[in-house]
Design a protein around this nucleic acid. Structure first.
Lengths: 218, 218
DNA sequence: TAGTCTCTTGAACGATCGTTCAAGTAACAT
DNA sequence: ATGTTACTTGAACGATCGTTCAAGAGACTA
């Protein structure tokens, strides 16, 4: 059974917005790629922007099944999951010969005064990504310092991914991405090391466990 | 003495490309902002893209005097310089009510198949930024671990800035940026701590100084 | 004064933009 | 059979896109 017209339009839009960006993709481009006439598109969507909205909704709903699940297949360790996801993006960068741009991030930077609906969807996409990473970090439990803000670190992982992708594309070189991920890995190693020495507090060093202010109970 | 026509065009383009992006800025927008006629623009520039090139050249040449120097005024500590620069961007984010986007990064993500000249200029802008940070990190000398790749860490700082700016804009909230910078600061603190315990090697812990492979000479 | 050069004027061009809509087709209900 | 609904067709619209260019203005040289 062939996909229906609406789905074909959304699918074509996902491809094109990712390849050329939103504003550089014309409705004519969309029509040609989806093999559809203008009237059909405007039967399902009030306008071009509503196609973008559908695309962002599809991305938002696809984060789990389309992105995280394949990236995490066979990986149990929650911290390795974080880096497996980054490895997934690395693969995309390589596959596209360093022209990959996060489809959400690109639109986020491209639209300077986005419609509130679009902006909320961009935020929802980022939130979904961050929440998934945060869950990993929470799952890592005492392997990370007690006082560490898991959400903040998850945001930092997204920051690293987006910033790394941008540099890889600008320099047309994955090593920019690799080096940023390596720095993030080094940070994680130090966090884990700190958490380890935190759990068995052998000789509390002067400034060692500053942020881990003594908890009220326990 | 009023600025000449060419300068007015470049200046207007810097404003507009930053406000609305390159492709969303029409030549008509440029003409109006610069108060110039089409013929004048096309007398100085073969086309719209060449205005972008002039803008990127101006940015590239302005990194020192326009960005670093004011950000570092009165700051001697090389590591504080790094965070002073990030604080500078924070100020821009706040001033623009979280609509700020790095003008270089935005164009880098916006142009999907950029002209080689444009791409090289984008890379040159990033390189200038990274080199300035790397100089700080080199200047920090033994306060950072010996074996640490200064260039990689400088790239990571840029990654943090670009990723943080993107999130701040998407969420319309500086705290996304702040939290990423805080994570970077936490990383730096741990690097400094490691470097400190590296210089006076009291009881080398099992896995402590792995990357610092013994240097051949010295 | 005439000639040359640099820069400005602004109407106009063809292409492409997002969008509209009257007409038509096919499936289903009555 | 007839009306209703859901969808498709594709020509056409006005607006805007980046760009062109013949004509002119002003300053300097010969």
């Amino acid at each position: 059974m062939p996909p229906d017209t609406r789905s074909r339009i959304v699918f074509a839009a996902m491809e094109l917005f990712w390849e050329k960006g939103y504003s550089s993709t014309s409705v004519a481009d969309l029509l040609k790629r989806a093999d559809v006439n203008a009237g059909s598109l405007y039967h399902f969507f009030p306008g071009k922007q509503d196609v973008l909205i559908a695309v962002l909704e599809a991305y938002r709903d696809g984060i789990g099944p389309m992105l995280l699940e394949p990236a995490w297949r066979g990986i149990g360790d929650p911290i390795e999951k974080v880096f497996a996801l980054l490895a997934r993006y690395r693969k995309l960068i390589v596959q596209t010969e360093c022209t990959y741009g996060c489809p959400v991030g690109s639109v986020a930077l491209e639209l300077h005064e986005p419609d509130p609906v679009v902006r909320e969807l961009l935020a929802a996409n980022f939130r979904g990504w961050i929440d998934a990473i945060r869950d990993c970090l929470v799952q890592a439990g005492p392997r990370l310092p007690l006082g560490l803000d898991r959400t903040a670190l998850a945001e930092f992982v997204l920051t690293t991914m987006e910033g790394g992708v941008m540099q890889a594309r600008t320099f047309r070189d994955v090593t920019s991405f690799d080096r940023s991920v390596a720095q993030l890995r080094a940070y994680f190693e130090r966090l884990e090391r700190d958490a380890a020495s935190e759990s068995r507090p052998e000789r509390p060093r002067a400034t060692a466990a500053r942020k881990t202010k003594p908890r009220g109970r326990r």
